[in-house]
Design a binder for these strands. Sequence first.
DNA 1: TCATAAACATCGGATTTACTTATGATAAAA
DNA 2: TTTTATCATAAGTAAATCCGATGTTTATGA
Lengths: 324, 324
Amino acid sequence: MVNLRDLDIQQLLTLRAIAEEGSFGGAADVLRFSQSAVSQQAAALEKAVGHQLFNRPKGPKPASLTEAGRILLEHAERILARLEQAGQELDDLAAGTKGRVVCGTFQSVSVELLPTVVGQLLLNSPGVEVELIESKSNAELIDLLVSGKIDVSFLVGPVDDPRLQIIELGQDPMVLLAPRHDEVLIGPDPEVPRTAVPIRELHEQPFIAQREESDHLRVEASLLAAGIKPRYVFRTNDNGAVQAMVRTGAGYSIMPKLSIDETDPDIRIMAFDPPLPKRTILLALRKSGPRIPALQTFIDLSISASSERLDAMPVTVNAMSGSV
Amino acid sequence: MVNLRDLDIQQLLTLRAIAEEGSFGGAADVLRFSQSAVSQQAAALEKAVGHQLFNRPKGPKPASLTEAGRILLEHAERILARLEQAGQELDDLAAGTKGRVVCGTFQSVSVELLPTVVGQLLLNSPGVEVELIESKSNAELIDLLVSGKIDVSFLVGPVDDPRLQIIELGQDPMVLLAPRHDEVLIGPDPEVPRTAVPIRELHEQPFIAQREESDHLRVEASLLAAGIKPRYVFRTNDNGAVQAMVRTGAGYSIMPKLSIDETDPDIRIMAFDPPLPKRTILLALRKSGPRIPALQTFIDLSISASSERLDAMPVTVNAMSGSV
DNA sequence: TCATAAACATCGGATTTACTTATGATAAAA
DNA sequence: TTTTATCATAAGTAAATCCGATGTTTATGA
């Protein structure tokens, strides 16, 4: 049996060239080798496959393939074509028109930000595949990222991992969801509804809460610190359910703005006075390793989509001194 | 763009092994290389394709493929599979269960001898292809044979070409075709028809002749030498037409026995007294070059079929002294 | 018939490639 | 901190590969 390791792509190229040119010397010319080299390659190939591949009529007559040579050539053509194709696809990858991006995400990002990004990406590069892996846990996403199972991930800040490159996309404020025609928190003049609600008015009001979400725990802590204790009338993890409950007037809810379906006409969104702490939304990548262009496009689109949907990051002293 | 010549089948095997084993060291073990060799091969492959193919997490963590690596691996799998297949087909070729035999032939052989041979060959080796190239000219068949366009050819002897190996299959006698119920040449007693006709009785008899066939020219010369001049009433090159004309009683014909459809019930076949010179039927092959097993089978079957359908070769003095 | 040309094989030598072994570097795990 | 499991790198050597020159064979043409 033939041992694959003894074969060589150069030998297949030579086989093809000899078949096309009809002579060793001709093949040598197109391959930019000496005739001697082609002769030696041909001999080596024959030795490797254990069959005579070429008829070598003595004297000034053209060489031709034996039956074994024809069989091998057929396969060689396919193999060389596939190598070409592989090269082409790698080129496409480099050009950003092909590739697969596996992205870690969590619910509030999945609702609107991510669909926008993915939609724009696929619009311009139909050859690109995007796979999403959703998780509630920052830590799990970081693990997947570091281990290479995903290429990029949205995270909730702060994150400080030396293995990761962090891009701060912006801040996602917590907002109050109220029914459209609510009369309690909307302010004295229904014609000019308030855009911010004093948080002390929330005391003892009925609330729909997310269950065990870290966001929610942080919010609760903030309210408690201000001496405010909401009254929870329902708990669920389903964002849509929360929104539906609010719509019916069963209670209010406090949610990250990103999670909300802002097209819902029966819902009013209001800020807080004073504002609750905002979540920082991050995009994280491995520091090392290749970054395919499609991924870079994904990152760029994420940044631009965030600038429209998230609050800007607060300016830090360091950032200020960095410019000038 | 990737230069195919820089790629190497060993590198593809290594790529696959690394992907399967999840580590360079593991791949080295299954490939029976040192870890260093695998590392160098991986680096060389990456350089050749111009993309990083492996994620190499520092420390004791498994290596994985990058997107480029996955793309290349997909193609590598196909390429390796095709190499396997090529090896398998070459093995089949060596075993005689696959291959293509291109055979030169001429009409009288094509009628019955060849179908028998081909039928038996395909019965035992369905993977074998047989292609027939028919020509009237011995010289043309020899050219095709020497130039490698055909692998083997039936010829009419004598042939003495130093480039060819000649196998004498047997002798094909010339026979007289008469209508079944002929009353002229069949002899005095219709119940006991003669099997041989004295050639002098052919003088001035009506004959159907083949046009310009070298066989026929030889026959005519023999008859003329004996002072016999047939009367030609029809000439055609179509054997079937000749036989049909004879059947209707339009005339007799002299044909090589091999060309005749002996199953025709309306035709009587008779020898000559004295016999006309017989044609020697040969099988010719190139002296040099590989002979695939399917071809050898073809040769063997041709010899055995000929021994049933042709007269044995006359024993020569040389052949006699050769034995004992 | 003899020289020429066209084809492939082979030899010898230089260069390049591709292993192996040994060692280094890194980070997780113990 | 030490150990362990990774991969990378360096140095040396064995092998492969290529070129140039030359040899062999056969058809062609003078």
